[in-house]
Design a protein around this nucleic acid. Structure first.
Length: 848
DNA sequence: TTCTCCCGCCACTTG
DNA sequence: CAAGTGGCGGGAGAA
């Protein structure tokens, strides 16, 4: 009762916030970190992940209700009314598990004040002042408020690999409220994420979440750009000279032949309009800085970048006067960026000792060597990402009790993996139903193939580098390590990307691509690019999908090739034009690149992650669909290293474990056309009991003829074979190469029917927690791609159908969105309370 | 003391 | 013009 009264009062007179609420965070209560949630009582907004839309916000935000968090005073008043607050409350209430989990991990412990503020706030009403005291105790330290932690929290809200159909919108306001921080902080995070294309701006106060799908591609592009910028040389120069800040003269380097900063702008693919007038300001933007910073790592042989060097380079590029003040400012910004990148597990803090002492620096621990030029093929340090994913799995595994006997988790520890907060959080918190899936590599298989060898030899990653990079990470693939334990979805995508980005036409990929597109679209203001690139391509709704497919031609590597690095084919690098050539120019949605750097674009495209695996485990729990495309970049040339994958189905599968032959496996290695008999699969270990219900589809298509004619379907389609005794329904579809091949693959996954509802569901939790617009009718909207639905018939899909599927793209640039946006808004409004989430259907053709 | 980097003012950009 | 963005650097916590 009292509570009610108070609440009412608050509502009525926000100006007089209850003490309890106000102080929740102790001192910080005044600050951004304070999260006061009174909304719980009456959520104004349906939780649903409502994509936020401005209109809605208006509705919810009374005049005084600042959409933008302002100063504390205002905030308190308004918070109770914010949809976000309500959302948070609901989410929290709805997913206690998540919270608990987080707590276990301690991930949020530091910021828990914020997090719990919410929870506590709920209690405050009931409990009274005691709760307040509690709060005060928890007052966060400076560290606890770090951007890195905040970023982790932020990331935890979204699925790492959102389904193509799943449109996730990020309302800055909402996020800020939910994370208990000022919106300003969110901008910092988002800007960095945007630089990596993990998100893209959709509209005011709204961003679209793309996930990690395109990260490899992005990194590759950045690497390439970095190489073009001669960053490595620049760094070397600076390091050698040990220039003082004051000595650092802009002109000096130029003399040495460094690229003209002016030109560099052109390379910044992130900003479409970047090239012109506002270049300077933009050049200083966190986004650009972030990209440049990443480029430095990517081009660096040591993968270590000292802040001073980075700052100097940035100062120079921004054409600022190299004064100490500027330097300090740059360093501050670099720390901001570094914190976010660290939370993304892409870099880690290190120190470099030099003559002048110890210098703060960061070391790249993310995937490396995407570029073409390096040692030869795309190489990645799988360790890093794999480790991340491993962790993911572990985390999830901890919580999920599924049989792992066959799967060997990298680490037995049940403890929450600390190192990569984001990822660790992810799995459960956010998303991946697939997290359960595990791919393990049997030792026997590994025997034949040393991962290290593969990495080092084929990949061309120096051992040192690898080792170092892997430091701190739990190596997923180690020579000694028998199994590769990775969430399937992620794995597929990850690997696919890693490999060279062959892009399978898989739905996920597409989705991913769409996201990219959208992202790109945002970035680029030139839709034309797509046209250009896509000219030869078949008309498709989405330029993206096409792109991917085409890429597949070039890149044959399958998603699973994870373990099998492409060999450096020739020394020619991917980066080399040649490589590019292979890939059809795809209409990239990555326009940024397009306009300025075609090459970059291509690279970008190549990197496209695919999502080969789609499963409905989460939802259906009955289907598991795995599409493996094992391809190499160049198709047949490079056999995938991975020989066997052990797939453990998520709960849905009842612990079904499957050993799948890697693309490399003899069987898999079959002809491109994928005519191989299903039975050829060397090994599949499926717990009979569990298998029952799941038929397994295996599509041998592994190596695509390199030169397969474009319109031809190299792969007939996934081979469907069912295990005896398996139920007819669920299938395990393994389609290695086929998938990869753009053309063929497309076929596979393209069919909406096949795909059926989206497989990969993000964890329910996730969906709840973030705004996700899900397709109401999976069928049409189905992700373009790549995902093949197991349950559905394995029948080959026609390219055509695929195209259709593509139509939907993620978020497009506001501009590109055009009516779509409007439409979306309308939809939102309409749907608003309904739980149904609508995905935007944006004709891919949007490009025009 | 130096390193970090949070915080939030306020200018610029957008719608 | 108001709201959204985000550059910037003071200043304080952490090491």
């Amino acid at each position: 009762m009292e509570v009610n009264c108070l609440t009412l009062k608050d509502l009525i007179n926000p100006r007089q916030p209850r003490l309890d609420f106000a102080i929740e965070d102790g001192e910080n209560a005044h600050k951004e970190n304070v999260f006061v949630d009174r909304s719980r009582m009456a959520p104004k907004t349906p939780i649903k992940n409502e994509p936020i839309d401005l209109s809605k916000q208006k509705i919810f935000t009374p005049e005084r209700n600042p959409i933008t968090p302002v100063k504390l005073v205002d905030r308190q008043q308004t918070e109770p009314w914010t949809p976000t607050a309500n959302l948070k409350m609901l989410i929290s209430a709805a997913s206690p598990d998540i919270r608990d989990w987080e707590k276990k991990k301690g991930l949020f412990r530091r910021i828990e004040n914020k997090d719990e503020a919410f929870t506590d706030s709920l209690q405050l009403h009931v409990v009274g002042n005691s709760a307040v005291d509690k709060f005060e105790k928890r007052r966060p330290s400076r560290k606890q408020k770090s951007l890195g932690l905040l970023c982790q929290k932020f990331l935890a809200r979204y699925p790492s690999y959102p389904l193509s159909t799943e449109k996730t919108t990020i309302s800055l306001d909402e996020v800020a409220v939910s994370l208990g921080v000022e919106r300003r902080r969110i901008y910092d995070i988002v800007n960095v994420l945007e630089s990596l294309h993990l998100v893209s701006r959709v509209a005011k106060n709204q961003y679209g979440w793309h996930g990690w799908h395109s990260l490899p591609k992005t990194l590759r592009t950045l690497q390439r750009l970095g190489e073009e910028q001669k960053y490595e040389e620049q760094m070397a120069y600076l390091q050698q000279k040990e220039l003082d800040l004051m000595d650092f003269k802009f002109g000096e380097r130029k003399k040495d032949g460094y690229p003209d900063p002016q030109n560099q702008q052109l390379l910044d693919f992130s900003e479409p309009d970047y090239s012109s007038s506002s270049a300077n300001r933009k050049d200083k933007s966190l986004r650009i800085m972030s990209q440049k910073f990443v480029m430095l790592f990517l081009v660096s042989k040591t993968k270590i970048v000292t802040l001073d060097v980075a700052a100097k380079i940035l100062i120079e590029e921004s054409q600022d006067t190299p004064d100490h003040s500027k330097f300090k400012t740059k360093v501050r910004r670099l720390y901001d960026i570094a914190n976010v990148l660290t939370s993304l597990a892409l870099i880690k803090k290190v120190h470099v000792t030099e003559e002048r002492g110890r210098k703060p620096a960061f070391k790249w621990i993310g995937p490396v060597d995407f570029s073409s030029s390096g040692s030869g093929s795309f190489s990645l340090e799988i360790g890093s990402l794999a480790a991340v994913y491993q962790q993911k799995i572990e985390d999830s595994s901890q919580r999920k009790a599924f049989d792992r006997k066959k799967v060997m988790p990298p680490s037995s520890s049940l403890e929450p993996p600390a190192p990569f907060p984001v990822h660790s959080v992810d799995p459960e918190y956010c998303v991946n139903p697939l997290a359960h899936q595990v791919f393990s590599v049997p030792q026997t298989d590994l025997q034949t193939f040393s991962i290290h060898n593969g990495l080092h030899g084929q990949v061309g990653v120096s051992p040192t580098s690898v080792a170092s990079d892997m430091e701190g990470l739990k190596p997923a693939l180690l020579a000694g390590q028998p199994l590769l334990y990775v969430p399937s979805t992620s794995l597929f995508m990850l690997y696919g990307s890693l490999q060279g980005a062959p892009s399978p036409a898989s739905g996920l990929e597409r989705s991913h691509s769409s996201s990219e597109v959208s992202a790109a679209a945002e970035l680029s203001s030139t839709p034309t690019t797509q046209k250009r690139l896509g000219e030869d391509r078949q008309p498709q709704e989405d330029g993206e999908p096409t792109t991917k497919r085409q890429n597949m031609d070039d890149d044959e590597a399958g998603p699973l090739s994870l373990v099998m690095p492409k060999k450096p084919p020739d020394s020619t690098d991917l980066a080399s034009p040649k490589t590019l050539d292979n890939r059809e120019p795809v209409p990239l949605e990555d326009m940024d690149l397009n306009s300025q750097m075609p090459a970059a674009k291509e690279v970008w495209e190549n990197t496209t992650p695919y999502s080969f695996v789609s499963s409905e485990w989460g939802n259906l729990s009955r289907n598991a669909e795995v599409e493996k495309a094992s391809k190499e970049n160049e198709g047949p040339k490079e056999p995938s290293v991975l020989q066997c994958l052990y797939l453990q189905s998520p709960a849905g599968l009842n612990g079904l474990g499957v050993l799948l032959p890697g693309s490399q496996t003899p069987c898999a290695a079959g002809p491109a056309s994928g005519s191989q008999p299903p039975l050829s699969v060397p090994c599949m270990v499926l717990p009979p009991s569990t298998l029952g219900p799941f038929p397994v589809l295996y599509s041998p298509t592994m190596a695509r003829p390199v030169s397969s004619a474009p319109g031809t379907l190299p792969h007939p389609g996934p081979v469907n074979f069912s295990l005896p005794g398996l139920g007819s329904t669920p299938h395990l579809l393994i389609g290695p190469a086929a998938v990869v091949n753009p053309k063929s693959s497309t076929l596979l996954s393209a069919d909406p029917q096949l795909q059926g509802p989206h497989l990969l569901n993000q964890s329910p939790v996730m969906s709840r927690s973030h705004n996700v617009i899900q397709p109401e009718s999976p069928v049409h909207e189905g992700p373009p791609g790549s995902v093949v639905k197991l349950q559905q018939s394995p029948a080959p899909v026609t390219p055509k159908s695929i195209r259709h599927t593509h139509r939907e793209t993620f978020f497009k640039t506001p501009g590109s969105l055009g009516d779509h946006v409007l439409r979306r808004r309308e939809n939102k409004q309409l749907q608003n309370t309904s739980s149904a989430q609508r995905r935007l259907e944006i004709p891919s053709s949007g490009a025009d």
